[in-house]
């Protein structure tokens, strides 16, 4: 694999008067040139912290990171020239126009005025911002602003673009639109490293991803492989609550050969089976025979949440503050 990012045992702790937080506890991974690579994890998993170390913003406590051929700790300037970074907050200057923001950014990367102006114009065209180019950024909508943030990250045509939660706070339409732009960017040869806590985003957008939790990498692979690992499909049974129905159902179903894995989540039972179509009638018959009432039954293809659940015993939707569009913490 032609790696553009390689990290080895990367570590970061924050010390405060109230004790220390091991935000990143030794993560090692490789990102291939030209792919969209994702970091998926709940709030506080250490995604932003890892990104800030890779982008030279935060000193590395332990381990090594090489980005675009340069060691991050020893050659931060060389790294900066080769990467683009869009932070969780964006960081566009609200009092200036979109075009002014882009031109200043391009010039800080060393471009001359004429080149930078032409590039800014072309980018605003590509990212559907041309219409608002000369309006102050404070008047932009969330989606327009996020597209400008992306434009600021790529004005100097970096080899790698880091995106920290690019679609947080966007509505589904704007999110899909942003995904299209990110894919187009990859197709033109830019490597993209993004963090997200949206399962759907990681699944739809990333070529490869790692799932992170409590500062550690839980699992790594393509979305497809990861889901295949979970094996088969998941069945969620919601039971009528009568004298320990959940426990009885778990004991009963856990003993069946076609049930690969099972978790009792109180009023519902989640199980993984090889073939859902075959298993469903058998499950129903079994429960019926034991007089365990079923309120509803729900069969689904595995999602990345199932992968997370299997690895950590928690659902990504519950861990941290889940997948909503809140969560701008830290």
């Amino acid at each position: 694999m032609d790696s553009i990012i390689t990290t080895h045992e990367l570590k970061k702790s924050f010390r405060s008067p109230r004790g220390s937080v091991d935000a990143v506890r030794g993560v090692s991974f490789d990102v291939a040139r030209g792919e969209i690579f994702g970091f998926l994890g709940p709030n506080g998993a250490g995604k932003t912290t890892t990104l800030r170390m890779l982008t030279t913003l935060l000193p590395i406590d332990g381990g090594t990171a090489v980005v675009a051929g340069c060691d991050v700790a020893h050659r931060p300037k060389a790294v900066r020239a080769r990467i683009g970074y869009v932070s969780q907050l964006g960081g566009a200057d609200a009092m200036a126009t979109g075009a002014e923001n882009l031109v200043l950014q391009g010039r800080l990367y060393g471009g001359d005025l004429a080149t930078v102006k032409a590039r800014a114009e072309a980018l605003m065209e590509i990212l559907d911002l041309a219409e608002f180019a000369h309006r102050k950024v404070k008047t932009y909508s969330g989606g327009q602003r996020r597209r400008l943030d992306v434009a600021l990250g790529i004005i100097h045509e970096p080899e790698v673009l880091f995106l920290d939660e690019p679609s947080t706070g966007l509505d589904p339409q704007n999110r899909a639109n942003l995904w299209d732009h990110v894919r187009a960017l990859r197709d033109r040869g830019t490597t993209i490293f993004l963090t997200t806590h949206y399962l759907e985003e990681a699944d739809a957008l990333c070529d490869r991803l790692v799932i992170m939790d409590h500062g550690e990498i839980v699992v790594e692979g393509t979305p497809r492989d990861l889901k295949r690992q979970v094996a088969g499909e998941s069945v969620v049974l919601s039971l009528r609550d009568a004298d320990g129905a959940g426990e009885r159902a778990s004991a009963l179903l856990g003993a069946q050969p076609y049930v690969r894995e099972l978790s009792d989540e109180g009023d519902q039972v989640r199980l993984y089976v090889e073939d859902g179509g075959e298993a469903l009638p058998q499950i129903l018959r079994l429960l019926d025979a034991e007089h365990i009432g079923v309120r509803s039954m729900h069969l689904s293809e595995p999602t990345l949440d199932d992968v997370f659940l299997r690895q950590t015993g928690r659902s990504l939707r519950d861990a941290g503050s889940g997948t909503g569009d809140e969560g701008r913490a830290a």
Partner: peptide, 14 residues
């Protein structure tokens, strides 16, 4: 700092 502008500047080679 709070609007992310400083971080954006610090990540450039400026």
């Amino acid at each position: 700092l709070q609007s992310g502008l400083i971080e954006r500047l610090r990540v450039t080679p400026a």
